[in-house]
Structures are given as C-alpha cells and as structure tokens.
Nucleic acid binder design. Structure first.
Length: 661
DNA sequence: ATAGGGTTAG
C-alpha cells in the first residue's frame, strides 16, 4: 500500500533551510507574514531568524542559467514544462528574476511556479509565492490557482481556502479552475461532503458553468467512493442533456475508476462506447484496461488489446509496456516476457525505474535473487538509479528465501549508495525475522527505527504482533498492540485479523469471541476474513454449533463466504463426524459460484477417509484429478495409511490403482 | 508560449 510521501512537509528542514539560505534578506523583517503558513509550524519556517548551520553562503554559479531578458523568458517557458534539474537552479533563477529591472511580467513568475509544481516542490512553490507577495510582485488568477494546487498537495486545505480572501482583496474573482482544484483537493482528502457543497455553489453561479474537468473530477470522486451507479447516472445525464462533450481524459478517468472497483468488463464496454462516440482511446485508456485484465489473470485478453493497439497504430509507451510486463511476470509467462523485452528494445522504448523494479520483483518471487541482483547491476549501467523501492524489493526476495543476512547486506548497500531506508524497508526485514521465528531480532530492528528517524507504521506493528503470536508470546503481542494505541496509531482491518487469529491460536477463544463482539458492536467488521478466522477458531475448539451459527448468518450480513471459509467449515464438519453435512456444503458451494480449490478437495477426501466413506473417496479423487489438482502431503499419508489398514475394502482396492499411479 | 481532470513497482 503506497502512502503519499510529502517528505518536504514532514521533514521539511533540509530543502526549506536551503531555500532560506538564498534569501537571507528576509530572515528577520517579514517573519510575521510567513509564520502563519501551516506546514512550517514553528520548527521550520522558511525565513526563520535562526541561522542555518548547513547553509552554503552562495550557491554555485550555473553558467547555463546566465540570464539576459529574452533568454530567461525562453528558459522559463521550457522549464515550466519540464521542471528544473535541481531545485537550486530554480531558486537561483528566481533570485535573478527578483533583481531584474524592470520587473518581468507575471507570466514568467507563474512559469517558475509551474516548474516547481512539476518538480513536486510544492512547499517551495508556496514559499516563493509568499515571497512574491511580500515584495509586491503582481499576481493573477494563474498564480493563485497554481498555489492553491500546491496547498492541496500539501494537505493544507485551510490555507488553500484562505487564498479566496486574498483573491477577493486583489479584486480578482475565483474561476472554474479554482473551483475544480479545490474540489479535487477536498475529494483527495476524503471530504466528499464539502466537495459536493462547493460543486453546488459552482452550479449556482450564473456566469460560471461547471465544465468537463469539473464533471470529470466529480465522477472520479463518486467512483472512488464506490458509488458506481450514481457516477453512471450522472455521466449519462450529462451526455443526454449535452451539458458537456466527454473527452478522452474524462473517459479515461471513468475507465480507471471502473477498473479500480473491479468492473473491468464495464470498463471495456466504455472503451467500445467511446469509440462509437468518436472519441479516440489513447495509450492511457488501453494501459489501464490491460493492467486490470492482467490483475484479473486474463493475460490473453490483455494481449488481445495490445494487438488491437498495434492495428490502430496506438504506440505502447514505457508505462504500457511496464504494465504488460508485470502481468506477464505475475502469470509466469517468461517466454512472452522475453519477447516483450526484445520488442521494447527494437522499438527503442527504454526501461525506466518502474520497469526494472518489476523485473527485480519477478526474479525475487521466483527465488532467483542472483538474477534480481544482475538486473540492478544492469540498470545502474544503463544510467537508471535504483531507489529505496528497488532495494527493498531485493531485500524482500532474500527474506523470502530465508536469507536475512543477505537482506541486511542490501540494506547496507543502499545506505552506502546514499539511499535512506524507509519504513517499508524495515517492515520487510521485521517480517523476514518473524517468518524465521526470530522475533527478538525483529524487535531489535523495530526499536532501532526511531534512531533512523523512522516511525513504525500500522504494518510494522501488525507484523510484529503477528510474529509474537506465532511463537506463542501472546502477552508481548498484547503489549505491542497497546504501545501502538498509546502512540496514536490506529489499528486497521489487518491488525484486527491478526489479533483475532492470534487470540484463537493461543487458546484464548473466549477473549477472541469478545474481541469479535466488540468489533461487531463498533460496526467495523464488514469483512469475511474476520468471520472466517473466528469460525476456524471455534471449529478447532470443537465449538461447531457456534461456528455454524456465524456461518449461517453471513448472508444476512451481506457477506459472501469464500473458498477458505468453506474449506474451514467442511473440515470442521468432517472432524465432528458430520460428513454428510460437509458433503452437502461441498456441493452447495459450487452451485453458489464458489469454486472448490485444491485444499477443498484435499479436505473432503480426508473427511471421507476419516469417516470411512471409501466409495466417496474414490469419486472425490476422480473429480480432483479431473480438475488437475493433486493430493497434498497430509492427504497422501492418510491414503497410504488406509491402504495398509483397510486392504480388504473393495473401494479401497479400487482407488489404490488410482492413487499409486 | 503560464493554471484545473487520466496510467505503472515494495
């Protein structure tokens, strides 16, 4: 799960202090104007009065940025599209702009801000803006809209809204872009009600209409809240009333929303629809659907879309190739992977950080850590620098093979290359140690995190709690859980699953039941896994009636038992000698659209053996073979056992043939 | 020739 990294805000000091070093003249005079800006708080104001010990006195002079007026204009136009290579360069240009007389038009300042946005240096952009205001450099709606976007990215929405006052004060009027930006900001921070209110306000104006961007944003918001039906209704209405003409980006947004809510077939339908309406799908459209199909395991269908792209002359870019590569790797289609890589070579599409990352991951998942290391070596040779994710992926690969020492070596390698490990890097190692049941080492790493400036996250805590429960150290597990609560970290659904499972497996079934009840009372367990865990716990304590009770109530809670739920119930029933009921469940699950997997067959076969229904064992084995599943170790040993003890039973004799072949 | 909406890895 990727969490947004607004590192400049959370650990803002280096860059902002650096920024500060360029503008020593403001360090004392205007502090009151800047200290109100939320992200800096008091710990790091961009113009704080404290001297910065790290600051260089003068940034190195960059000859390429040597500026005459027309030259500077051209440069800014270019950099507003591409961003500067270094933050330093942007700041130096700004510094030079401040010294030019007469002052450059607002356009150039806006372009500088745009360049900073492109470089994702949002807080720096806001500081530049503040600086402009302090110096009374004229600003316009472009400026405000750019800065509002920055505030949204920095999650300082209040500050974004306070811009509205500044806009009014200058006699300007917020435009539809302002509204669109704010609506998007609210939606991305999970504040749909306020977003909707703002949208209503926009609708209410006589001289401003929501446009295609507005509706794209709104529909995206609806889809991200799983309100697929409302989104569909709104979209259809917009087309019917000719309110807007949907463009490719709008279609792509909706298709993305549909893909992310696992409505891939609906997304494909929309693709056909947009073609019919004369709106050309592009590489992005196809990439999203290809990604979704691959994630559904429908790689061939994805490849079908690729040929369609080729026929239509829509070129695959590096993202499309990367998406497809990932799909091929996941389904272990190595030949296709190789072919695609050489196609990229022929078509001159160079692999980027993501592409290499996927290859590293693929090798690791196959246990080929050596090949993964080679990929990293190749990427470095090709001038692509591995990042913290690349190295963490390799660490995970080593942990997967139980080679934690090698994983630790990678940690040191990345440090040596100037890459700072993050929380996920630690989580991988902690998980590695827990898997090897070396929980003490895991705890040691956990305690080491703050010293590296890292704060354990929910996943860290969950991993550790899981590790402790697994080795039976339940009271320490509880302590870590309480530590987590005390630190103000909220357990998520995974933490709850781990706790419930831990309690069950550590013989605290009654506590597990009351924990389950607490979760239920708080309405936070609309989760089939939670129910499945408790059912399993109850079955293992021979509390079959209670387990069955939960199982029977699943549907009324709107929960769909999955194949694991069924396997657990079937095993529970067999163990209590209720083979007939187990068999009934077995046939019912298939009818309800839940296909039995290899574990199901193994379970029912063992159940039939335990309950001496050898005739049925034969049928189950045949069915299992027909589906290309095979007996696992425990089933095999049980079959062999029966073969030796029941050799007179005619059915046993019959399936001996089957089994021994 | 400046601002707003869409895609990928731990």
């Amino acid at each position: 799960m990727a969490s947004p990294r607004f590192q400049i805000v959370s650990t803002c000091s280096p860059l902002l202090c650096h920024f500060h070093s360029h503008f020593p003249m403001f360090s004392t005079n205007h502090s009151s104007a800047v200290t109100t800006f939320p992200p800096f708080n008091n710990t790091c104001t961009p113009f704080s009065t404290k001297p910065n010990p790290n600051s260089k006195l003068k940034p190195p002079f960059i000859p390429s940025l040597c500026t005459t007026h027309p030259h500077l204009k051209q440069l800014l136009y270019h950099k507003s599209k591409t961003g500067f290579d270094k933050l330093d360069d942007a700041l130096q240009v700004f510094d030079e702009m401040l010294h030019l007389k007469p002052l450059l038009p607002v356009l150039q300042f806006n372009q500088l801000l745009a360049a900073l946005v492109r470089m994702k240096h949002y807080s720096v952009a806001v500081s530049v803006f503040r600086e402009m205001r302090v110096l009374s450099i004229p600003v316009d709606m472009f400026t405000f809209n750019t800065v509002i976007k920055c505030c949204c990215h920095l999650n300082t929405l209040n500050y974004a809204f306070s811009m509205l006052a500044g806009i009014a004060k200058r006699g300007l009027v917020p435009d539809v872009v302002t509204y669109n930006t704010l609506i998007k900001g609210l939606l991305s921070r999970d504040r749909p009600v306020e977003a909707e209110r703002l949208f209503e306000k926009l609708v209410g104006y006589k001289d401003m209409r929501p446009n295609v961007v507005t509706y794209t944003t709104i529909i995206k918001g609806l889809l991200s809240q799983d309100r697929v039906l409302e989104a569909e209704r709104l979209f259809k209405k917009l087309i019917r009333c000719k309110e807007i003409e949907p463009d490719t980006v709008m279609y792509n947004t909706i298709i993305d929303g549909l893909c992310k809510t696992s409505n891939t077939s609906m997304a494909e339908k929309l693709l056909r629809n947009m073609e019919k309406k004369g709106c050309k799908p592009d590489t992005v459209t196809y990439s999203m659907i290809i990604d979704s199909l691959c994630k559904d395991g429908l790689v061939d269908q994805a490849l079908g879309l690729v040929s369609e792209m080729n026929e239509k002359g829509i070129l695959l870019d590096v993202i499309a190739y990367t998406t497809l590569l990932q799909g091929l790797c996941r389904s272990k289609r190595w030949e296709d992977t190789k072919r695609l890589l050489s196609e990229m070579d022929v078509k001159n599409v160079s692999l980027d950080l993501h592409t290499y990352g996927i290859l590293v991951d693929a090798h690791c998942k196959e246990g080929r850590t050596k090949d993964a290391e080679d990929v990293i070596e190749i990427m470095i040779r090709k001038g692509v620098t591995p990042n913290v994710i690349t190295y963490s992926t390799l660490m995970d690969g080593f942990c997967l093979r139980g080679k934690i020492d090698r994983a630790l070596e990678v940690l040191n390698t990345m440090r040596a290359n100037g890459i700072v490990p993050d929380c996920c890097s630690y989580n991988i190692l902690i998980n590695g140690y827990c898997k090897r049941k070396n929980v003490d080492k895991a705890i040691e790493l956990f305690r080491q995190m703050p010293a590296e400036g890292l704060k354990p996250d929910v996943q860290t805590y969950s991993t550790l709690i899981h590790g402790l429960f697994q080795v039976g150290r339940h009271s320490e597990a509880r302590n870590i859980f309480h530590e987590m609560l005390k630190k103000g970290d909220k357990p998520d659904i995974v933490t709850c699953r781990i706790l419930l499972d831990g309690l069950c497996k550590n013989q605290f079934i009654n506590e597990a039941i009351s924990f389950f009840n607490i979760l239920e009372r708080n309405g936070i367990i609309h989760d089939i896994q939670i129910h499945t865990i408790l059912i399993d716990g109850l079955c293992k304590k021979s509390k079959l009636d209670e387990a069955r009770n939960i199982y029977d109530n699943l549907a009324s809670r709107g929960l769909q038992p999955n194949v694991i739920t069924h396997n657990i119930m079937i095993r529970g029933l067999c163990q209590e000698g209720l083979y007939e009921e187990a068999k009934e469940l077995f046939s019912k699950m298939e009818a309800s659209g839940c296909l039995p997997d290899d574990a199901t067959y193994n379970t029912i076969i063992r159940g039939s053996l335990v309950n001496k229904k050898y005739e049925e064992t034969l049928v189950h084995i045949e069915n299992m073979r027909a589906r290309c599943f095979s007996a696992d170790a425990s089933t095999t040993s049980m079959v062999l056992d029966v073969l030796s003890t029941e050799e007179l039973d005619p059915f046993v004799l019959a399936f001996r043939e089957w089994f021994l072949q």
